[in-house]
Amino acid sequence: MNWKTLLLGAAAGFAAGYAAKQKIDETGGPSPERVLENVKAAVKKDGKIYGSWIVMKPENYEKFNLDYQVYKGGITRHANGKREQFEFVADASTGTILELTQKND
């Protein structure tokens, strides 16, 4: 087998795979990281963020008899001299926050 042909085929396969991934990313919803950044931006308006987490795999969720694919996560911040913890549910296809709940210690 000719090495040039093998390398050319591998490079073409890599380029096609990369292009396909980019196209899927453009048409898909926001990444979990992007959703977490959006939620953090909304919550940090009133205090400094000290920790956050998100489940990377979307889950089924129902609210008001509507079905969603969602990301769930949480945020810890300090505001007014005390620690506050929040949990959130965000639509996986749009990144919209569907629910933001403050947890009591």
Rank of each mutant, 00 (worst) to 15 (best):
D46L: 02
K48F: 05
K48R: 05
K48T: 12
K48G: 00
I49K: 01
I49D: 04
G51D: 09
G51C: 04
G51S: 08
S52Q: 05
S52N: 05
S52V: 02
W53R: 10
I54C: 08
I54E: 04
V55C: 04
V55E: 13
V55K: 14
V55S: 09
M56N: 14
K57I: 07
K57W: 00
P58S: 10
P58V: 04
E59H: 02
E59V: 02
E59P: 02
N60V: 04
N60L: 12
N60F: 04
Y61T: 12
Y61H: 15
Y61Q: 14
Y61C: 15
E62S: 15
K63D: 11
K63E: 15
F64M: 06
F64L: 12
F64A: 12
N65P: 00
N65C: 04
N65V: 02
N65L: 12
L66Q: 13
L66K: 15
L66P: 00
L66R: 14
D67P: 01
Y68L: 09
Q69E: 10
Q69K: 10
Q69H: 01
Q69Y: 01
V70E: 09
V70L: 10
V70F: 03
Y71G: 11
K72I: 11
K72L: 07
K72A: 06
G73I: 03
G73T: 02
G73P: 06
G73M: 03
G74L: 07
G74E: 03
G74V: 06
G74Q: 06
G74F: 07
I75G: 13
I75V: 15
I75K: 08
I75M: 10
I75H: 10
T76Q: 13
R77W: 03
R77K: 15
H78V: 13
A79I: 04
A79V: 09
A79F: 03
N80Y: 00
N80M: 03
N80W: 00
G81N: 06
G81T: 04
G81I: 01
G81V: 02
G81E: 02
K82W: 03
K82S: 14
K82I: 05
K82T: 12
R83Y: 01
R83D: 10
R83N: 06
E84S: 11
E84P: 03
E84G: 06
F86V: 10
F86C: 10
F86N: 13
F86M: 08
E87D: 13
F88L: 08
V89K: 01
V89S: 00
A90S: 11
A90Y: 05
A92F: 02
S93M: 08
T94E: 08
T94H: 08
G95K: 07
G95L: 05
G95I: 00
G95W: 04
G95H: 05
T96H: 14
T96I: 06
I97E: 13
I97N: 09
L98E: 09
L98V: 03
E99I: 00
L100G: 12
L100C: 12
T101Y: 07
T101F: 09
T101D: 15
T101I: 15
T101K: 15
T101S: 14
Q102N: 10
Q102S: 12
Q102G: 09
Q102Y: 00
Q102L: 11
Q102M: 14
K103D: 08
K103Y: 05
K103E: 14
K103R: 11
N104D: 15
N104E: 15
N104G: 11
